[in-house]
């Protein structure tokens, strides 16, 4: 990591740490942002680093939200246990869905994940405990480890921030691990990875499970922040939204999904006044992005830096 990147991360972290001590940005909004940034980053592990486009990640995000909400509300579990339950659900569903979906490639993979996630949507709509159209409301935030009361926004904020940081670090590590190297090689050239002796199905499945689990963690955290789990979270719109965030921010970049989540959530918030027209604006932005800057915001920025670096190196070479 270059010193400049390190400095950027430190500044970001410092800004995040002081959020509760200012009045310019609404703290619940930042928590929402963190949840979605984590969701998109988990998704990016699959799309950006393994080359698999899942169109069913709402099943993990929203499903985990329901599990956490139910565990905390009906069974009175502490928040950390509720979140672990949500993650366990996401890991198991991720394993089941992943095992089926990785048998196919490309658009078929996406369609299978979409179909399976619709099953979860149906369950959320029909099962008793999920409360149908109402969802699960009034989820207690509870006491972390039975000690720290999370009903204050500040306490909950630091908890969510810690979760998100844990998630980002886990993803960062997975990308830069021996496992991550093989994932990238599968993304780059799958037949070649096979011919080097890698059983690619195993790698794709593990990537899918990790991605689903962390997406679940994001959904669980969100259900505590809003004290709510609803059908919106498991709807296929949500699966699409995370694709949008990741592509807009920059596939296969560390900060891309975070920026993408910020842009999408920020715009939704800002455009809330014009109601359903906001999707038209978002759609238009997406079209512009795909046509004009395909690498996404962060992707284009990195490409620009790379070009400048290359030009400088070239100039240096000529002078010497």
């Amino acid at each position: 990591m270059s010193p400049r990147t390190k400095a950027l991360y430190l500044v970001l972290l410092a800004l995040l740490l002081i959020v509760p001590f200012q009045n310019m940005v609404y703290i619940v909004f930042v928590m929402k942002l963190l949840c979605f940034a984590l969701f998109a980053s988990a998704f990016n592990l699959l799309l950006g680093y393994t080359g698999l486009l899942s169109f069913g990640h709402a099943a993990f995000f929203g499903g985990a939200a329901y599990v956490t909400a139910h565990a905390c509300k009906a069974w009175g579990w502490t928040p950390e246990m509720g979140i672990l339950a949500g993650m366990a659900y996401a890991a198991i569903t991720g394993w089941a869905f992943g095992s089926l979906a990785i048998r196919r490639q490309g658009i078929y993979f996406a369609m299978i994940t979409l179909a399976l996630s619709q099953l979860i949507f149906f369950l959320a709509l029909q099962l008793k405990f999920t409360g149908g159209e109402d969802g699960i409301q009034g989820v207690p935030r509870g006491k972390l480890f039975g000690l720290i009361d999370l009903s204050s926004d500040t306490a909950l904020y630091y908890f969510v921030l810690a979760l998100a940081l844990f998630g980002f670090l886990a993803i960062q590590r997975a990308i830069h691990s021996p496992f991550g190297q093989v994932l990238k090689s599968i993304r780059e050239n799958e037949p070649r990875a096979i011919s080097l002796g890698y059983d690619v199905a195993k790698f794709k499945l593990l990537a899918f499970v990790i991605s689903a689990t962390l997406a679940g963690m994001a959904g669980s955290a969100k259900s505590l922040v809003f004290q709510l789990a609803t059908l919106t979270d498991v709807h296929w719109h949500m699966s699409g939204e995370v694709v949008l965030m990741t592509i807009l921010g920059g596939i296969g970049t560390i900060l891309g999904p975070v920026v993408g989540a910020g842009v999408v959530i920020g715009l939704q918030n800002y455009l809330a006044g014009i109601g359903s027209f906001s999707t038209i604006v978002l759609g238009a932005i997406f079209v512009v992005c795909v046509l004009a800057f395909r690498r996404g915001i962060v992707g284009e920025w990195l490409a620009l830096l790379e070009r400048r670096r290359a030009a400088k190196a070239e100039a240096g070479y000529r002078e010497s």
Partner: peptide
């Protein structure tokens, strides 16, 4: 990536 195969740590997503 090819050499890594024989170390048997290719599934280790927690290692640097």
């Amino acid at each position: 990536v090819g050499l890594q195969q024989r170390l048997g740590i290719s599934m280790h997503f927690w290692k640097s």
